[in-house]
Design a protein around this nucleic acid. Structure first.
Lengths: 341, 341
DNA sequence: TTGTAAGCGTTATCAG
DNA sequence: CTGATAACGCTTACAA
């Protein structure tokens, strides 16, 4: 049976109040009392019960990070930074994955799930914006949206400018002389914000360069996985006029796409240049190394944590939109070929 | 102000007990009462407070998974499976990373950390066994050790047979005709169980094949990262007699090692065969694809969750050792070359 | 500076 | 089957 505050108080012959003061590091405790209490704590091997404290204070000291899949490198790298950023301000992070399951997202968002032992929610959603609004309606759990750029003033957002990021990637492909630029990553059925924005950036860049937008060059990928990238690229390579460059909406798609190019007996970047988005570490060691749009994950993590904590402390705060920086990283997969072009 | 059980009881003109019964799905409630209570819940938009429930029942419904780094693919893939396995039995997972920080491990293990809102700990440790024993001593938090094979009857273990796994990997290299087999992954200073066991397996295999054990072929890697693998392989390639095969203690090390081989102008597997351990998805898309020892992560996740929950329910349970299966996966990085050897 | 006591919102005991 | 009431272990007015 673990010792309680009361046990310690009895042992030390002081009141619970004094013990509590010592434990919580309250300033005004006499040295004599403090040592006496500390001794009793030691003897009884007392540990405060965090649940009781939480019930009293209303704070769990825990944040929830909800992502589609934690084993997707972008999300695990984000999680790493979020956990670190949270730890720095005394918070722990619970991670949940929705596995592309809308129902799971809904439960979390509506608070229908009964086991919500956390103070705030960092949410990287699949759902579209309007659905989201409807869901979270009656909930008072502080919420920050990650990676959704469509800001409407109702929720805090932390995300890059997806349109600009996509445009930068495609512009780079144009700059190295590619003209038949395909895209992998638009969503098959549903209308998610991020892929729509990246598609928009892709089209903007093509239009600005006077390049034709070929519908057969725009391929879908349900899960931004390596195998989806592989399948999509394979389809592109079988077109009568295959592309000479592929812009992938994620690095994982790009990794898969590159593999498809090799399996078709072609080279990256000589035959087909490939670029992704995310800048996951895998792309820094792939062969060839992967050009990408780097998202400042530590920034995203730090700002989301800062923001969610501000909101926990003051729920009436107006919603803000934080745009995280991104930048183009040119690596081997789009390196201009010496003696070509 | 959120509605409480008491509010609902007043609204529905019943006792708190009855409301609680309805909320918790207790069997013996009359239909009339139930609908009346349900209506009140609906009207007040009542949600049970999980913290209060937890204080009363003593169960948080949360497990902690502690890993060195969540963005290491093996751990994020393990986390994925643990989260899923836990969800299946109604548990959530809090993730913490120790970042190779012994002090952080100690805090978690000793329960010194005050914010332990979880019922059990799944721990993938850096610390050696004896340190561990000393630390966890006074704690009553249920604990399962992941990936440490040295079973001593004091803690539940779930792990593969590291010695056999390493042996299998090296035997495969021997089987394809390699004789100068190097290893990457022993630890520089400290004596961790896993690398020691994998080193032992490596040496056993060499000895059984009558191959010389060359000390300069055994290189250290502090963090099992891609860059450590790169650095270690680079050093091996600069030896007067470079190896013709490298056994890496993790896939990430192997990915880095392969990159170093290419950068040196050599080929995998023609000049140097490379094999890892873990079977992370990255190795299924790398170029060449990576031979490896596959650990049954879903099995490890499932069994650890099953075991920790059993222990939560009955802390007196004797400690058990669960050995997870592993198997060799031969891919391109060790494929025998046609027309060679 | 320290003690007393009232909750925090549940669940569980004990009657009825 | 339902009602009143005592915990669960802690924090914090309010007193002293």
């Amino acid at each position: 049976m673990p010792a309680t505050l009361r046990d310690v108080a009895e042992r030390a012959q002081v009141s619970m109040r004094t013990v509590s003061n010592v434990v919580s590091g309250y300033a005004h405790v006499s040295e004599r009392m403090r040592t006496r209490v500390l001794a009793a704590i030691e003897e009884l091997d007392y540990r405060p019960n965090p649940v009781a404290r939480t019930l009293r204070t209303g704070r769990t000291g825990m944040l929830a990070l909800v992502v589609p899949e934690i084993d997707v490198p972008y999300f695990s790298e984000l999680a790493r930074d979020v956990i670190d950023a949270a730890a720095e301000v005394g918070y722990r992070v619970m991670i949940d994955q929705t596995g592309h399951d809308h129902e799971r997202e809904r439960q979390l968002l509506t608070g229908e799930d009964r086991t919500m032992l956390f103070d705030g929610l960092l949410f990287s959603p699949l759902v579209t914006k309007s659905e989201l609004l409807a869901m979270h309606g009656s909930m008072r759990m502080p919420l920050i949206l990650l990676g959704e750029h469509e800001f409407d003033g109702r929720y805090d957002h932390v995300a890059i400018d997806n349109v600009a990021a996509a445009r930068d990637a495609v512009n780079h492909l144009i700059a190295i002389g590619r003209t038949r630029i395909a895209a992998i990553g638009s969503q098959p059925l549903e209308e998610y914000a991020t892929p729509l924005q990246r598609s928009a950036g892709y089209e903007t860049a093509l239009a600005a360069a006077g390049l034709e937008r070929r519908p057969d060059y725009v391929t879908t990928a349900a899960h931004y996985s390596r195998s989806d990238g592989y399948a999509a690229a394979r389809a592109l390579l079988e077109l009568p006029t295959p592309p000479d460059a592929i812009f992938c909406f994620s690095d994982l798609l790009a990794i898969g796409a590159m593999r498809a190019v090799f399996d078709a007996g072609l080279r990256v970047p000589e035959d087909i240049a490939v670029i992704g988005i995310d800048d996951v570490e895998e792309g820094r060691f792939s062969r060839p190394t992967l050009s990408t749009i780097s998202l400042d994950t530590p920034f995203i993590a730090r700002e989301s944590v800062r923001r969610i904590i501000a909101r926990i402390e003051d729920p009436t705060l107006p919603a803000t939109e934080i745009v995280a920086p991104h930048r183009l990283l040119v690596r081997e997969s789009t390196r201009p070929i010496v003696g070509e072009g």
